[in-house]
Nucleic acid binder design. Structure first.
Lengths: 256, 256
DNA sequence: GCGCGGTTTCCGGAAAATGGAAGGCTCGCC
DNA sequence: GGCGAGCCTTCCATTTTCCGGAAACCGCGC
């Protein structure tokens, strides 16, 4: 049901209005925070005049703004709205003190993430004291199959999501990245029975991460915490206890 | 147009589509993070079926989500997008280390804010060690006339904005809140010549805040920092130096 | 002057948006 | 059990708003 709607036609709407406006917003990402109108139109694949009209409306409301060079950027109003998202900033707020404790104790990188579709979204990350440089960005996305948090979230996702991910193309980063569906399935089973995940050098060759699930009152996994450490500095098993304890504390804080 | 009385009320669009979708999103605020469809329609003042259709489209994209009780809430995707806003998270990111330094030194509440229209939007706040409880929320709005950051931002806004604010109704919080336009004008002039603002018990009777402007390369004021302390604990003048130094450091960090 | 990239405005035509009505659904109360 | 009150969802005739090619409008550099 993808595109191919290019025909020189007289006039008339060609698609739901809102979805076009949202496609326009999708043109922004971490590498493209400020765009010209033409860039926006190109990236969203729509006529210039259409993009112009839509962007005008979005501007009027504050979803996008123009900077002093005339470039369009994501507006403050959108950020305000976003800061009301329960699964993002809401979760972050209640989890933060526990994450900081974990960081204090271990001096390592701590990460908090949730699943969105077939990807991980990082909600918070605290940089440990002089440990491995982190590649993640708050608000950024990542594959479910490589990171510690990702494996936890995937292990407790619906089978439908799991199949989607395992049957699709699997991101590859290092020689240790597991890309074999069969092996991944085994790993996920282990995550479920152990109560924690280990991603050993699957993202970069010098890092290892251990993740644990955060559950809601009814037991459903809604998020995950992880600790990212330099490979070889500690055993994964040694960290697992700490991470699980932290995750359980957050789970408890979430339920009332 | 001409009087055109129709008996069977026909149907047809009554307003720009996108603006309606955005009005729908406006229904969410800090006190209403989860709403039923009916509430949404009521708050946005539109027919149920219209709200339903629009919300469906927003859901499909991830701008809103449904929680397990069927309530609608702001979606994670929106937060992701919002985290790309240069004036919000972008500014926050570069300013954070300086704000933390200021907090370490003074042990007091530190706030970072920008102006949006005729209001203040708080971009970051760090809670000092056992000082005055803060009323602000990251992502929250406030009047320009009462807080330390607000006075700074108002003092350096265009005359048009200043007139808008001074001629409009002015929020009143305590017996010390300045609501007289003439007196406010004098305060703003003082802010410009001193390089810092003082809000003495204008928000609560036990707090005092001192703000300073953050400037871009060309000198334009783009944000403000403030320190919020218990009334009587220190003199405003004593704090002003620290706040200004911090603001200047951030200004410098912003320019390259 | 001329061309070039980006931006803005225009306007006839037609698809997409609208919202009242009707159908389900789940409670809680008589 | 029957019944009403809310809430959610689907339907569809009616028209209003959206669409987008074209053309004007900017600087800017040559």
């Amino acid at each position: 049901m993808v595109n191919d709607r290019r025909r020189g036609r007289p006039s008339g709407p060609t698609g739901p209005v809102i979805s076009r406006a949202l496609r326009l917003l999708d043109a922004f990402d971490a590498e493209h925070r400020a765009l010209t109108l033409s860039d926006l139109a190109r990236r969203a694949d729509m006529p210039l005049s259409t993009a112009h009209r839509l962007v005008q409306e979005l501007c009027a409301w504050g979803a996008v703004e123009r900077d002093d060079d005339g470039l369009y950027q994501v507006g403050l109003r959108l950020w305000e709205l976003g800061s009301l998202a329960p699964r993002g900033p809401g979760l972050r707020e209640t989890a933060l003190p526990y994450l900081e404790d974990l960081c204090q104790i271990t001096r390592e990188n701590v990460q908090l993430a949730v699943r969105e579709g077939t990807e991980v979204v990082f909600v918070e990350r605290i940089a440990g004291f002089g440990s491995v440089p982190v590649l993640t960005r708050v608000g950024g996305r990542w594959a479910l199959t490589s990171t510690g948090v990702g494996l936890v979230l995937l292990a407790h996702a619906s089978t439908e999501v799991q199949e989607d991910v395992l049957n699709g193309p699997i991101e590859h980063h290092t020689a240790k990245t597991v890309t074999d569906p069969v092996q991944l399935r085994r790993m996920l089973a282990a995550v479920r029975s152990n109560g924690y995940s280990v991603s050993d050098r699957q993202v970069t060759m010098d890092a290892l991460s251990v993740g644990a699930p955060i559950r809601r009152g009814d037991g459903e996994v809604v998020a995950a915490v992880s600790l990212v450490v330099r490979h070889g500095s500690t055993t994964a098993h040694g960290l697992a206890g700490l991470v699980r304890t932290c995750a359980q504390a957050i789970s408890r804080a979430l339920t009332p």
